[in-house]
């Protein structure tokens, strides 16, 4: 299973150089008026839907950059955003 991720700094690299950083859940919720339910949702919960998702990665064994990509979790392949937009 070849798995390549495109780092915005280093370009396409072997997937094992990276560390997964979770589904993209938007900005961290504000501390004011934060309920346990909302915090739990942000920290633990995920959609976990098979298919294309926006997600965080860090180039741990490389430049250390954090970035988001779109990846199809059913094929385990990075998906180009341009292709995604063209399909919509």
């Amino acid at each position: 299973m070849a798995f390549t991720i495109t780092c915005p700094v280093c370009g396409p690299r072997d997937g094992y150089e990276f560390r997964f950083g979770g589904e993209d859940k938007g900005p961290r919720p504000e501390a004011a008026d934060l309920t346990p339910a909302a915090w739990c949702d942000y920290v633990h919960m995920a959609d976990s839907r098979p298919g294309v998702q926006k997600e965080w990665w860090v180039h741990r064994q490389g430049c250390g950059a954090w970035f988001t990509i779109h990846r199809d979790t059913v094929a385990n392949q990075e998906v180009s955003l341009n292709l995604l937009e063209a399909a919509e």
Binding site: A46, S48, R49, T73
Partner: peptide, 19 residues
């Protein structure tokens, strides 16, 4: 493995699960 995805798709339920 598909239970979290089904729960999300069918009922909007979010679960602390990574497959």
């Amino acid at each position: 493995a598909y239970s979290a995805g089904l729960a999300n798709r069918f009922l909007g339920q979010r679960l602390p699960i990574s497959v």
